[in-house]
Write a protein that binds this DNA or RNA. Structure first.
Lengths: 132, 132
DNA sequence: GCTTGACATTCCACCGGCTGTAAGCTCAAA
DNA sequence: TTTGAGCTTACAGCCGGTGGAATGTCAAGC
């Protein structure tokens, strides 16, 4: 199949498939006219990448996951460790975003939100009085 | 004061101060030798930006916040609306990351994490069986 | 046979928010 | 006078794509 069909089948934009190939995450055969040609295995690989990205793995992590997937002698402990590390990264991001959110909720609650110029949000940004 | 002192005082790296100036978020006077010279007001502006960034506002949102800060005829409702929009963005990001986290927790719990190659994480990435 | 339109190709630029590096200028201290 | 720190500009790179230009290929319709 051609790239567009593979794109539809995998959920990755054609542009992204070419980009992933340039990074060595995907290979392709070429037809006589230079067009990329894909089979079921290729689409499965694309879906693997799409799902990994959906879980927030970086492309380098995706590369490691694909390497493990391709290696029949892998230990599931390796995959597990990679996933746990990513879980830690997710936790840290969630923690940071939640801290931002809480501070902002507090500020918004103390800003009258009317026609007056007085605003706890700007005061806090200007003078660092995030709390009280 | 010179850029390094302003950097220490504001918490922004000197490089970032120059970058913000290139975007028009900060202005600077120049001494005869071409060196940037900053005063207390400039450092306060940098701190304003640093705090806004800490809360996750984009640089364009920071620009709007600074514009409002500079405008004595502003309505706090404008600031409030900007903050609430950002709060929505934060909520959405947290929601996505939490969804990733939950899926990953589930997968990790079903991966033995031993020397065997069988792994629920890879199975799920390969065949989409995220649940069960 | 010719045109049209939907595909395909490569290559380069851009997004945000910096960060690193290189080449060169300025200045105070030893 | 020379060193070394600090300043300047300009360009490249990071991540994960996305957009666009210029060009090539192919099947269908006239």
């Amino acid at each position: 199949m051609l790239i567009k069909e593979a794109a539809v089948a995998s959920g990755l934009p054609a542009k992204t498939i070419r980009y992933y190939e340039s990074l060595g995450l995907i290979q392709s055969r070429r037809a006589g006219n230079g067009y990329r040609q894909y089979g079921t295995r290729d689409v499965e690989r694309m879906q693997f990448l799409a799902r990994s990205r959906t879980l927030g793995f970086s492309l380098e992590e995706c590369r490691s996951l694909l390497d493990l997937y391709d290696d029949p002698t892998r230990a599931s402990a390796s995959v597990n460790a990679l996933a746990r590390e990513h879980l830690d990264e997710l936790d840290e991001k969630i923690r940071q975003l939640t801290a931002m959110k809480q501070t902002l909720i507090d500020l918004v609650s103390r800003c009258p939100g009317n026609q007056s110029p007085d605003c706890a949000i700007l005061d806090s940004l200007a003078h660092g009085q995030a709390k009280q």
